[in-house]
Design a protein around this nucleic acid. Structure first.
Lengths: 349, 349
DNA sequence: CTGTTAGCGCTTTCAG
DNA sequence: CTGAAAGCGCTAACAG
């Protein structure tokens, strides 16, 4: 098991020669050991370890086989955000479960939101793509589709030729919104960004159809229906748009809302992180939950249980696994994932 | 921009023919656009979009260039644990930062702890490897080294021919142990596993040299020195070994310790997660912190600040970035990362 | 069980 | 600025 350190790459042909067999016998030794006699196999392995051959070159093998045994995951602008969002991390874990089981690798594709995203997609040596929820106008979608490999979008948008794995965000928002807004007079929504520009604003119920993130759009639509079901006009519902999905920004914006002349008495957020920020702002402002302010989150993360948040439960991990199956070409039918409302003490119902 | 959906893969040669240029002109159009006339380039791009050619095949390109522009990350047994440990996630984010900047992908390699790990390493189409802290006897290390590509281990063990990025765990443990054990009579340690078998046990200060995880070994050695510095023999220090790094198991084991005839009055843990579990157990047992029980964590995670834990601060994100640089072959100097003690209310000093 | 042939799709020479 | 040749390292397909 020695090797001249730093040596040039050893090839299968050299191993075969050293072992005194044909290249194919050497190849079979690695790929179909059963087809090779015990004797030949041990000669090949001896030659390999003598030469310091670690096994067939992965790139050459991929080229020849036409398959890389790797799945590509596009996590959206700023790759490192992916690892800051606990739900995104659960989703990755679900993909990892399936990949580990199949012996596949998973390549995280570094998307920056800039123009060079497309060449990066194009350059990815993967057998299939999984795209984390994005906007209708994201050029990454066309780039992925152009690769002509199995592809799946999580959340949305729905793209022809790509699978979609998602819950029914509108129905879930309608359901949790109904709980959040029950008995409220001035409901508000803390929202994810409306476009890839990620601008923070506070508006009143605007034109939902203009929202470019389909997941956000569907949830707003569900909240709208919930508000109207509670007898409140959508134009009277304050929408606080946060640039990012984190507790800190939500806390700031909630503090602003609560300090206004007509503070909200119910806030439906789009994540438990955001809802946690709202809860902190409410405490700081001396508001009682749920009597002065009802709050709902989304995802049923650990923090939701800790804070007693009413929320929408869904399994990002299972959805990640479903996406992996789709990207492997194993799932023929579209996946509608399940969700449920978890009622806790942060709402009046 | 049309294409017969589901068509066979289009090659660069076909594009070149369609454009009426040589294959090399087409290739240059993608790789060195400056070397191609405006006219030729637009003919090539027109032909490409007409044929639905998405760009050079990544596998073929990797084979020819001898480089995949991808880094491999080995996260240790059970890939999905990687995503459950917030510090591991920070580490990944640090790698992601560098990869995104360089236009590299990062492939997470699915390690299961079983025998098929080695072939999976061998099959990885990557330019360099980053190995998350593991045990001395992990066969993955030899497999990575056999690949003869730039490789770096985070934490440990130190392996000849591979870089090491780590803090000085022994010194840090000695320092935080000194704070934890100050004024204590019966110190205890809540430890990570001692071997890859991941067995939970409660013992008293045993033979540290037998511990197979070097990070754990170094920390135990530091705690030993701290205990002896406080006048306590190592054999009198209770070591509670947890199979996994989570709050729940630490809480259970701490509850057991606190219910014993001679309960500890100081517990040094190996992570903030574990320390959080200890704090919960102490509260449940009606112990005051730090008067009845001093507690220290490790990593200075968010939970450490929330609970007021004295802990060891280190930046896994920076260490991830340092590993990425090393795996890219950019490493100027061996990396010894920095750490510091953060004193909060969970200790007597 | 073993071997021969024929490329996978691309880009590095090296010449125009 | 453009092109012809050569072959990266490997394995599917088909003989023996």
């Amino acid at each position: 098991m020695n090797s001249s350190a730093g040596s040039k790459r050893v090839t299968l042909a050299q191993v075969a020669e050293q072992a005194g067999v044909s290249v194919m016998t050497a190849s079979y030794t690695y790929n179909q050991p059963d087809r090779v006699s015990e004797q030949a196999r041990s000669k090949v392995l001896a030659a390999a370890s003598q030469l310091g051959y670690a096994g067939p070159d992965p790139s050459a093998r991929s080229l020849r086989r036409g398959s890389t045994r790797t799945l590509g995951v596009v996590m959206g602008e700023h790759l490192s955000y992916a690892f800051e969002d606990p739900e995104a991390v659960s989703f990755l874990a679900g993909i990892a479960d399936v990949c580990a089981d199949r012996g596949y690798g998973m390549t995280i594709l570094p998307i920056t939101g800039a123009a060079d995203d497309v060449p990066r997609i194009t350059a990815a040596a993967v057998d299939g793509f999984i795209v984390w929820t994005t906007s209708d106008d994201d050029p990454v979608l066309a780039a992925v589709r152009a690769m002509k490999r199995p592809a799946v979008v999580h959340g949305g948008p729905a793209v022809r030729g790509m699978e979609l794995v998602s819950i029914d965000n509108r129905a879930a928002a309608r359901a949790v919104g109904a709980v959040a807004f029950a008995g409220a007079g001035r409901p508000a929504v803390v929202s994810f960004p409306l476009s890839r520009a990620r601008i923070s604003t506070i508006t009143s119920g605007g034109d939902i159809t203009e929202v470019l993130f389909p997941v956000t759009r569907e949830r707003l639509e569900g909240y709208r229906q919930a508000a109207e079901g509670a007898g409140i006009a959508w134009r009277d519902v304050v929408i606080a748009v946060c640039a990012r999905n984190d507790a800190a920004e939500a806390e700031r914006v909630a503090a602003t809302l609560l300090a206004s002349a007509e503070p909200p008495d119910a806030i439906a957020a789009m994540s438990d992180q955001q809802a946690a920020g709202v809860v902190h702002a409410a405490r700081a402002a001396g508001r009682a939950i749920p009597d002065d302010l009802a709050v709902t989150g989304w995802d049923d993360a650990a923090v939701a249980e800790r804070l007693g948040l009413t929320t929408v439960a869904q399994s990002l991990r299972e959805q990640g696994a479903a996406c992996a199956h789709a990207a492997l070409g194993e799932k023929p039918n579209a996946q509608t994932a399940s969700w449920s409302i978890v009622r806790r003490g942060s709402t009046r119902q």
